[in-house]
Amino acid sequence: MNKVRATAAEAVHDITDGSSLAVGGFGLSGVPDVLIAALYARGTTGLSVVSNNCGVDGAGLGVLLDAGRIARVTGSYVGENKEFARQYLSGELEVELVPQGTLAERLRAGGAGIPAFYTPAGVGTQVADGGLPWRYARDGSVAVVSPRKESRTFGERIHVLEHGITTDFALVRAWRGDRHGNLVFRRAAANFNPLAAMAGRVTVAEVEELVEPGALTPEEVHLPGVFVQRVVALTPEQAGAKRIEKRTVRD
């Protein structure tokens, strides 16, 4: 039952080239930076990543992106990452953009063993009708487009079929966690981390505070340990190293 690993490097040792990853985080909140750094140091490449966004230049998943380690991204937001946009538009990166709520539900559904579901989100757009550029060619033409999705009417309203997402691994960050893998997330970090953790066949969690089993009450736990296979305890310095995406100050 003790799922704690001594180092982040040990926790990601079997993530091989071409693996698929669900990665938690919302903007720069709750991003598993230590695990991402360990994966970068390992040299793993050709990754297919599912995440709300792909970090920013030089931080979060942007570290792997800058190094050319990511082959495909499924996400909902390009954000402030100029390298992400450059790689996508130049044909170096395949990108599947998904409405944010749909992405969240696809991850949750995959983790819950639900293969697919219907949603009205995206009906009447290229999300449902197909034709969204997934990959550009080097000459700027569109090389791969999204397919048309199955639709069905419920209660006189059209819905589109979306598939649940499962991945080989998931990397997440939690505020508190115990040795059994029970996790608590804080504020904006709770947006995508629990869902990403559910979707991974092997989920690795870095925790800012590691506690003993029994210290967390059932009411506190946001994600039960059944979804988590490995836990890495962060040092106080690692736990406190949190970047601000956009700093605003008063005169």
Rank of each mutant, 00 (worst) to 15 (best):
K3Y: 09
K3E: 01
T7L: 02
A11R: 00
V12L: 10
H13N: 07
H13P: 00
I15C: 03
D17P: 04
G18C: 09
G18M: 08
A22G: 03
G24H: 02
G27V: 07
G30E: 04
V31A: 06
V31D: 09
V31F: 08
V31P: 10
P32F: 00
A38E: 01
Y40H: 14
Y40Q: 12
G43T: 06
G43C: 06
T45F: 03
L47A: 13
V49I: 12
V50T: 14
N52A: 10
N52R: 11
C54Q: 08
G58Y: 13
G60L: 04
L61P: 15
L61N: 14
V63F: 07
V63H: 12
D66V: 00
G68W: 09
R69S: 15
I70P: 08
A71D: 11
R72N: 02
V73Y: 14
S76M: 03
V78Y: 14
G79P: 10
K82V: 13
R86H: 11
Q87V: 00
L89N: 15
E94Y: 00
V98C: 03
V98S: 03
V98Y: 05
Q100C: 01
Q100F: 12
G101Y: 13
A104I: 01
E105A: 12
R108C: 08
G110K: 01
Y118E: 08
P120I: 13
T125E: 12
A128G: 08
G131Y: 13
P133R: 04
A137W: 09
R138I: 06
R138Y: 10
S141K: 04
R152C: 09
R152V: 09
T153Q: 15
T153E: 15
F154T: 02
E156F: 05
E156A: 14
R157L: 06
H159V: 09
H159A: 09
E162C: 05
G164Q: 08
T167G: 08
D168P: 11
F169L: 00
F169H: 14
F169V: 10
F169M: 01
A170F: 04
L171S: 03
L171W: 07
V172Y: 00
W175E: 03
G177N: 06
G177M: 01
H180N: 11
G181A: 11
N182Y: 08
V184K: 02
R186A: 07
R186V: 05
R187G: 00
R187T: 12
A188C: 01
F192I: 02
F192V: 02
L195N: 03
M198S: 05
A199L: 04
V202Y: 10
E209C: 04
V211M: 10
P213W: 09
A215N: 05
L216N: 08
L216G: 09
T217K: 15
P218N: 13
E220L: 07
E220A: 15
V221Y: 07
H222C: 02
H222V: 01
L223D: 03
P224H: 06
V226Y: 04
F227R: 07
Q229F: 00
A233F: 02
L234T: 04
L234H: 09
Q238E: 15
I244G: 13
I244P: 03
T248K: 10
